[in-house]
Every structure is written in C-alpha cells, then in structure tokens.
C-alpha cells in the first residue's frame, strides 16, 4: 500500500504536507512489512533540529534495527508518543495515525526532491528483483 499524497525516500520514510510548512513524517507500509514485529521505537525530541537525510530516530525489530532518515530538514515540532508507546499502531495505519514526527521545514522545496507515489512504486518493484 502506497499513499498517493505522500512523497518518499529510498529508505522508505514518507512525508506529507500539512500546511504552514509543516510536514508529517512516517514509515511506508512496505518498510514495516520488511521489518516484521517492531519491538522498540525511539524518536528525536520536540525542538530538535534535523537536516534532510539526517536521522530522527531508530526503529528496532527482533532481527534488525534501522535509523530513521528525515525526508526534509527542519525543526521537529511534534512527536507521536502514542506510536512509540505502542508500535503495533504503525502497521494498522501507517500513513495517518502512524505518523512519527512532524517537521517544520526550513526549506519546504526539499519536498520536491522526494519520489512521488508512482516513482516510489517503481522503486519498490526494482527493489524486489
């Protein structure tokens, strides 16, 4: 499942514009499937700043741990503690309730650098090869 509204990084993070230069950021359902059961999620704190491609947290399953990369640079203005307390929520609704952080972009045009849903779909097909 791919959210058509969102744009994507090759590392499977998505971003969606919420207005006023604020973007919600999460993990694609493909990434969540690959990870398996998530046992731990650590997110940066509100007020932290992050660059595009910088890390804003770690997601950990039994067999893997991955850094979370920011699709856009800026200030983290909100953190979804509900998902870090209960990572199962992520799989149920990865693109809405399962957002991880909200970033106030310092340069909103970075959004354009990301893959759109169609490009991401193609990317996933090449990944599966």
């Amino acid at each position: 499942m791919i959210d058509p509204e969102a744009r994507y990084l090759r590392t499977h993070e998505w971003a969606k514009e919420e207005g006023k230069g604020i973007f919600a950021v999460g993990l694609s359902s493909y990434a969540l499937e690959q990870l398996g059961d998530i046992v731990y999620l650590e997110l940066s704190e509100k007020g932290d700043t992050v660059e595009q491609g910088g890390t804003f947290g770690v997601v950990e399953s039994v067999k893997a741990a991955s850094d979370l990369y920011a699709p856009l640079g800026g200030e983290i203005v909100e953190v979804n503690h509900a998902v870090s307390d209960n990572p199962d929520m992520l799989k149920e609704d990865p693109y809405e309730e399962g957002w991880l952080v909200k970033i106030k972009a310092s340069n909103p045009s970075e959004f354009e650098d990301l893959m759109d849903a169609k490009e991401y779909k193609q990317f996933l097909e090449t990944e599966a090869e």
């Binding site: 046992v39 731990y40 950990e60 399953s61 039994v62 067999k63 893997a64 741990a65 850094d67």
Partner: peptide, 12 residues
C-alpha cells in the same frame, strides 16, 4: 535486544 549489537548495527 540483539539489534543493539555489532552483527546487526555494525558501525552504529
């Protein structure tokens, strides 16, 4: 908690 360890996290 093996995800903390070198065989998974390598340089991190």
């Amino acid at each position: 908690l093996q995800a903390r360890e070198q065989h998974i996290r390598r340089d991190k």
